[in-house]
Computed example of a mutant assay.
Amino acid sequence: MWNNLLFVLILFGIDFILAITHSLQYVYSGSSGIPNLPEFMTVGLVDGEPITYYDSNIRREVPRQEWMAKAVDPDYWNRNTQVSMDTEPVFKTNIEVAKQRFNQTGGIHTVQQMYGCDWDDETGATGAFHQYGYDGSDFIALDFRTMTYVAPVMQAIPTKEKWNSDRAELENIKSYFTQGCIGWLKKYVSYGKSTLERTVHPEVSLLQKDPSSPVTCRATGFFPKEIMVTWQKDGMDMYYDVEVGETLPNGDGTFQITSKLTVKPEDRKMNSYSCVVQHKSLQDDIAVLLEEKNIRTNQGGLPWGISIIASVGLMILFAIERLWIKNRTG
């Protein structure tokens, strides 16, 4: 119960308050043993919106936003294509090294790197993150308070010791995250201002597979990403019997999120329940009462899954990232 409460307060309460924070994130993913999947993929995101993409099949860095394609010169794509091509063999090597350290041979394996920075354009506050995962779990991460790497698993200790001994490289990394990364983030925000600062209101619906199943409140089609979805009982917020999902991308530049409520039929008859959605695009909160007339079922082929991202490679890259994040948050 308290884990759910803490998750709601941290993930949604804080994000909702700090809705003006912009972020730049890069996700690099190398894999082995997965048929028909590029062995190496990268995606760059600004405020959760994919702006660049590369994989080992197309071997070319390409824009994912029209405004991004118009804002930068052609040499930008040439430079970043070369960076991705140079990084690709490093990830192949990293997988083999990790397999040796974990005493593995064949099978499906992934190495992923996530790094980036964020910037509050009102207060000027900045932050950064730089971490690696292996097979969906944390492998090594940089602690920016001490500028040292931290290894949560013993197999990463040799890497930690090697990287921590290179103080010159650590200074270069610090400079990038405090200056270069923030500088690029500000540029990208200015390039895509009309898109990144737009607001699209969510569509909210209640879904239930059968009368004995949990009731799902689904908000979809909204932008920006920050949103708060809560359940209320007789007008009071609920922090138990509630399971909040992650905010996931749709294929059209908008987002979606679900929140499940487990409630007994007799409790529904005796109390008033409602799903309440707060979002920047709304003048007033959306509140949907838990009544039979407001509940949709999966009869008639109603789609329950998330919207498919246009690029299969990008979709799988997001799936790997979400698996890693899910493992990190327990």
Rank of each mutant, 00 (worst) to 15 (best):
D138K: 15
D138I: 12
D138G: 15
D138F: 13
F139R: 07
F139D: 07
I140E: 05
I140C: 04
I140K: 05
A141L: 13
A141W: 13
A141C: 11
L142E: 05
L142H: 08
L142I: 08
L142Q: 05
L142G: 11
L142K: 08
D143I: 04
D143R: 04
D143Y: 04
F144L: 12
F144G: 11
F144R: 12
R145L: 07
R145A: 07
R145K: 11
R145T: 10
R145F: 04
T146A: 04
T146Q: 07
M147K: 08
M147Y: 11
T148F: 07
T148N: 14
T148K: 14
Y149K: 10
Y149E: 07
Y149I: 08
Y149R: 08
V150R: 09
A151D: 04
P152D: 12
P152C: 11
V153S: 03
V153N: 03
V153G: 02
M154G: 07
M154Q: 15
M154N: 14
M154L: 13
Q155E: 11
Q155D: 09
Q155T: 10
A156P: 01
A156M: 01
A156Q: 02
I157T: 08
P158A: 00
P158K: 00
T159G: 05
T159W: 12
K160A: 06
K160H: 03
K160F: 03
K162S: 04
W163M: 01
W163C: 00
W163Y: 01
N164I: 00
N164Y: 00
N164P: 01
S165E: 04
S165R: 03
S165M: 02
S165F: 01
D166T: 00
D166I: 00
D166N: 01
R167N: 04
A168Q: 03
A168V: 06
E169M: 05
L170P: 00
L170K: 00
L170D: 02
L170W: 02
L170H: 02
E171G: 04
E171M: 09
N172Y: 09
I173R: 14
I173T: 14
I173N: 09
K174N: 15
K174R: 15
S175W: 11
S175L: 08
Y176L: 10
Y176S: 09
Y176F: 15
F177K: 12
T178F: 14
T178L: 15
T178A: 15
G180C: 07
C181Y: 09
C181P: 10
C181D: 09
I182T: 11
I182L: 13
I182Q: 11
G183W: 06
W184E: 08
W184A: 08
L185M: 06
L185G: 08
K186V: 03
K186I: 02
K187Y: 05
Y188R: 05
Y188G: 01
V189N: 05
V189T: 12
V189P: 05
S190K: 15
S190G: 10
Y191F: 10
G192A: 03
G192L: 02
K193Y: 12
K193W: 11
S194Y: 13
S194Q: 15
T195D: 12
E197P: 00
E197A: 02
R198A: 11
R198F: 01
R198T: 07
T199C: 06
T199Q: 10
V200N: 13
V200C: 13
